[in-house]
Design a protein around this nucleic acid. Structure first.
Lengths: 215, 215
DNA sequence: CCTACCGATCGGTAGG
DNA sequence: CCTACCGATCGGTAGG
């Protein structure tokens, strides 16, 4: 232990600073996003105050504005990060799957994105769309189009092979709607696992697919 | 927590009413519910001010509180009235339909409730659930259970006859989720009619049903 | 249902 | 990242 420095400086007001590590700033920002996503999901964007968010991150009321320009910027960052993570997860899953099981892979990855651990970001996107400005909306919509493209591809294949009777767009909207609704009723602890849920969804929507490809 | 049930408690003070016509007060109250539903749907409950609502109804800022105890009571009244109307519509539709077409009837009525003219009440319920108090939630949940009971009945029949492969509860959640999601993307003007949408949903969900019973 | 108003709270900022 | 603070806004109320 080194002896305490006798620094003659005026004692800074407030809580003594921790050691300024290089990664610290990014960590604090990330922590803000995490707790903001959680609160936005539970209480909604408008009903969540920046003071709520600061407190949940162990900060004072003005401090979130050191990391984000505004409350609106925080909401946007939550959705953007959520969509980027979702796209990554989707791509990883599809890369290691056979073409026949594409649909199953998409559903399984989607449930993980919606209901897996730490998954508040996409639910916030689904339920706070109207809280975005037009500019923000356009940016997130671009990411969503990439995400949906994978679904359109898989669904078109199933339409052409007669496994699905509806045009691919309507099928995609209905299918994703059915899955997205699960954030309203799924309870991780009790009930089915995400694996079982995936099987049930596949059996319901593509019953004519070979059981081997359905799972 | 406020007692937000729609108890029309009359305030003792205030200017004596003009013409004490029975319908007049109800009309203003009904108008408030209508514009509140519209605003709650567009901007969300927390982001809608009671001043917004008053202005949309052509009133001054304090006047909504003559008709409703609180903003929370207004939200509850919107959802309650929406559910009562939905139950009525569902019952009417089922009363005049053959048992085989039960499923088609339910889907068609549901689209009407969600997307038909003047249909802001149920979308508000779907997207502002978290803005209710626990007591309010319990009251609306009771109405929802009645609404879902009709679906459970129809879906159990389809499970037993092999038209649907999943347990009735999961099937109900997935179906209603798929339909409910339509409030996010359906545009009344362009695109399919509600009748066409119903046919597409039926073809997607119950492809093995006879075409005659599907429509 | 209007006028006039209040107390609380909110997003955000200056300066360190 | 904190302290101290501001201007705006909000839900709600008293009294008529």
């Amino acid at each position: 232990m080194s002896e305490a420095h006798a620094v003659p400086q005026r004692r800074p007001r407030g809580r003594p600073r921790k050691a300024p590590e290089a990664l610290d700033e990014g960590n604090r920002r990330q922590e803000l996003l995490r707790v903001a996503a959680q609160l936005f999901r539970r209480k909604g964007f408008a009903a969540t105050t920046t003071r709520d968010i600061a407190a949940a991150a162990g900060m004072r009321s003005g401090s979130p504005f050191y990391h984000f320009d505004s409350k609106a910027a925080l909401l946007f960052a939550v959705m953007e990060q959520g969509m980027r993570a979702a796209l990554q997860r989707q791509a990883d899953a599809l890369a290691g799957a056979s073409p026949e099981k594409q649909m199953h892979t998409l559903v399984r990855a989607h449930f993980d994105i919606l209901l897996g651990p730490g998954s508040d970001f996409i639910p916030v996107m689904l339920y706070e769309w109207r809280s975005l400005t037009a500019t923000q909306r356009a940016a997130i919509a671009r990411l969503q189009r990439d995400y949906e493209a994978a679904w359109t591809g898989a669904l078109q294949g199933l339409c052409e092979t007669g496994h699905i009777r509806a045009d691919a767009r309507v099928a995609r909207l209905m299918f994703l709607g059915a899955l997205n609704w699960s954030v309203q009723w799924y309870k991780p602890k009790k009930g089915a696992s995400l694996e079982e849920l995936t099987d049930q969804a596949m059996q319901l929507f593509v019953p004519t697919l070979d059981a081997g490809d359905r799972r």
